[in-house]
């Protein structure tokens, strides 16, 4: 099993590590039993575009316990999502994550799944909160 250079770069120097104080949404996925746990925190911003208010990911951070692929995909999802509208961010899937990292070994594809799921859950968490 070999990781791409890009996976290694993101694994060794992950971006956007940390927590956001009073986040608008949190997505928690995985469990310690299977070895990978990811938390994704988001802050949502609003801006006007063509007279319409749109919501976008203003800030995003993560905390992950897991293998090299888990850390690299967490970092990548935060970069992919930052600045995107919530609608666009929700569309990011595991292939987007994997491709952006120069592909993951097949056995580690579930990590990109986890990362995409964590982001989706964070957005859903936000949407649930504002509906209340």
């Amino acid at each position: 099993m070999m990781y791409s250079k890009k996976v290694m770069r993101y694994f060794l120097n992950p971006k956007n590590v940390g927590e956001i104080k009073n986040p608008d949404g949190v997505g928690k996925v995985g469990n310690p039993v299977c070895g990978d746990v990811m938390y994704v925190y988001i802050k949502v911003g609003k801006k006007k575009q063509k007279g319409k208010e749109i919501k976008f990911i203003k800030d995003i951070k993560f905390k992950t316990m897991g293998c090299a692929a888990a850390i690299a995909t967490s970092s990548m999802i935060t970069e992919l999502a930052k600045g995107k509208t919530l609608e666009d961010a929700k569309k990011i899937n595991r292939n987007d994550v994997s491709k952006s990292l120069g592909n993951l070994p097949p056995i580690k594809m579930h990590c990109s799944n986890l990362a995409a799921d964590a982001l989706k859950k964070a957005i859903e968490d936000y949407e649930k909160k504002i509906r209340r």
């Binding site: 290694m8 694994f11 060794l12 070895g35 990978d36 316990m65 897991g66 293998c67 090299a68 888990a70 850390i71």
Partner: peptide, 14 residues
């Protein structure tokens, strides 16, 4: 505690 073995190995390799 709290870390994954492969990640430790990866950082050691670096």
């Amino acid at each position: 505690e709290g870390v994954e073995g492969e990640a430790v190995g990866g950082y050691l390799d670096a």
